Simulated scan of single mutants.
Amino acid sequence: MALNDAATLVIGSGNYLTAPTGTAMPDDLLTPLSPWDPVGHTSLEEIFSITSEGGEATVIGSLQNKSLRTKYSARTEKLAFTLQQFDLAGLKLYYGSNAPTLPDGSVGVPNDPIPTACAFLAVFVDGESHFAFYAPRAEIYRSDDLSFGDTESLAGLPLGVTPMPYGQNQWAYAITPLGGESAQPVPPGGA
């Protein structure tokens, strides 16, 4: 692999958007049009993270070869960011899409919350370059407990995005490469 200075990333700004499940990635990532809708203000400190569960290796052997093959369990990944906008849409992303709006305008917290099902797009801008994560099908729901830590910073709603395969796709989410190698997103694990 050759050195590629254009493939480095320093995030200057970014945006998180949702759309109906199955919505294609927009042609213009910097100004995505409807039905893509920004989720609102997000944390400057906790920009984005990816965690995974599963993927454990099990070595399978035979009497003649104790390490004949390796089998991996299924892996689930979760993308996370912190929403700092406590409006109706933001509260429903955190508490569940079935959180009712009560007669006085407050949001009821459901006993059996349902995650928000949608397409998800995260776009990060570095000068003239941009980098994106795209999931045609995902579920958004709280990723951590709510905590207000101080009076000096904006409070936030920690959200987790679980990408899932859509239709016949053999991938759950796609990533746009930097450095001019390809303008098309590269799904995790190949095509």
Rank of each mutant, 00 (worst) to 15 (best):
L3K: 06
N4V: 10
A7R: 04
T8I: 03
T8E: 06
L9S: 06
V10T: 09
I11K: 11
I11F: 08
G12Y: 01
S13M: 03
Y16S: 00
L17M: 06
L17S: 07
T18G: 01
T21N: 03
T23G: 04
A24F: 03
A24L: 05
D28A: 06
L29P: 06
L29H: 04
P32E: 00
L33K: 08
S34A: 14
V39D: 00
V39F: 03
G40A: 08
S43Y: 11
L44F: 08
E46A: 08
I47H: 04
I47T: 14
S49P: 03
S49T: 15
T51A: 13
S52M: 09
S52I: 02
E53S: 12
G54H: 01
A57P: 12
T58Q: 12
V59M: 01
I60E: 10
G61Q: 05
S62W: 06
Q64R: 12
N65L: 11
N65Q: 14
S67A: 15
Y72W: 07
Y72I: 02
A74V: 09
A74F: 03
T76C: 02
T76F: 05
K78R: 14
K78T: 15
K78N: 09
F81W: 10
T82G: 04
Q84L: 05
Q85P: 00
Q85K: 14
F86I: 07
D87E: 12
L88M: 10
L88I: 11
L88V: 14
A89T: 10
G90F: 09
K92T: 09
L93E: 01
L93I: 10
Y94P: 00
S97Y: 08
P100L: 08
T101H: 00
L102I: 03
P103S: 10
G105A: 07
V109P: 09
V109I: 15
N111F: 12
I114Q: 05
P115E: 01
T116I: 02
A117M: 11
A119M: 06
F120R: 12
V123W: 03
V123S: 00
G127E: 06
E128Q: 12
H130R: 06
A132E: 08
Y134M: 04
Y134F: 15
Y134S: 04
A135K: 04
P136Q: 13
R137K: 15
A138H: 06
E139W: 11
Y141P: 00
Y141W: 13
Y141R: 13
R142C: 06
R142G: 12
D144A: 15
D145G: 15
G149Q: 13
D150L: 07
T151D: 13
T151S: 12
T151H: 11
E152Q: 12
S153T: 15
L154K: 10
L154N: 10
A155W: 13
G156Y: 14
L157E: 00
L157V: 14
L157Q: 04
L159E: 10
M164H: 11
P165T: 14
P165M: 13
Y166R: 07
Y166T: 01
G167L: 13
A174E: 14
T176M: 11
G179T: 07
G179K: 09
G179P: 09
G179N: 10
E181V: 13
S182W: 07
Q184N: 10
Q184P: 02
V186I: 09
V186M: 13
V186Q: 14
P187K: 05
G190H: 08
A191W: 09
A191D: 01
A191T: 07
